[in-house]
Simulated scan of single mutants.
Amino acid sequence: MSISASEPDDCVSAGELSARYDNFVVDLLGSIAYGELSAFERLATDARHSPSLSDRAVLGKMAVAEFGHYEAMCARLVEMGMDPELAMAPYQRMVDSFHERTRPADWHESLMKAYVVEAITEEFYAAIAERLDESTREAVAKVRTSDEQLQELTTLLKKMLAQDPRLSSRLALWGRRLVGEALTQVQRIGAKHSFLMGLRADATQEQAAADIATILSTLTRNHSRRMSQLGLTA
């Protein structure tokens, strides 16, 4: 695999750059795959605590979609000749730890977590995927909550907040904690596995960190906009 948008310089051979890129893509797809598998498990569990069957269906459909995303990532890894389980292994402890730190206390917090975390992770991977080869970019594009499901989740949250205005301050605080943890998680994974280092021949840790910082800034702005749509302060 090669990068059409980048040409190797005198210090990095085409073969070395291609190998660097392949390693980057395996890391990226492995992190997405385990994140989606974990999201499936979490949403399926949270759905059982729903106050009504219709509410349960909202998270149930999201859980099914997350498992489909997981399968899409595994299929792409297999196409590359990689073992999906080995690609996911480096992320298991990190992702599990994140979910332990952000365990919802009740149904209301479960919905807010789905609203905040799914959007941030999907936007992060979409931003990186813009720089990838077409096949990988198309695979990552499949990891996206449908507009219909997002609207259902937004409507459910708005309804819940309207019925009990006392939830606003608690969920606003919970949302701030979630976005802080999610952005820290993005930085931690990016630093540990050198995301963006494989995308060009002259890449350095400093340049990769600057690229991540730009993406994080965009994620933060988008999160604030989504919270405003709920009438909450980010």
Rank of each mutant, 00 (worst) to 15 (best):
S217Q: 06
L216T: 13
R103T: 14
L230D: 00
E41Y: 05
K159C: 11
V12Y: 12
S224M: 07
V140I: 09
T218P: 00
V117S: 02
I212W: 02
E148T: 09
E148M: 02
L17G: 06
E16K: 10
R144W: 01
T102Y: 04
R170H: 13
L43H: 11
K113F: 05
R101G: 09
G198S: 10
L171G: 08
T220K: 05
S6V: 05
A234D: 12
A87N: 08
F98E: 06
E130H: 15
V25R: 07
L232T: 01
V58C: 11
L219T: 02
K159I: 03
N23M: 13
S6W: 03
T233Q: 04
A105S: 09
D164L: 00
T145S: 00
A201H: 00
L196Q: 06
G175A: 10
K113M: 07
Q187N: 10
L77I: 04
D202R: 05
E85T: 10
A139Q: 13
E79T: 08
D164G: 07
Q185S: 09
Q151K: 06
Q229K: 12
P90H: 03
L161S: 11
A72G: 08
A33Q: 02
I3K: 00
L178E: 01
R101K: 15
G30I: 08
I215V: 15
L230H: 00
L59D: 09
L232P: 05
E71T: 09
S110D: 03
D96H: 12
A47K: 08
T220N: 12
A39T: 14
R93Q: 15
S18M: 13
D147R: 12
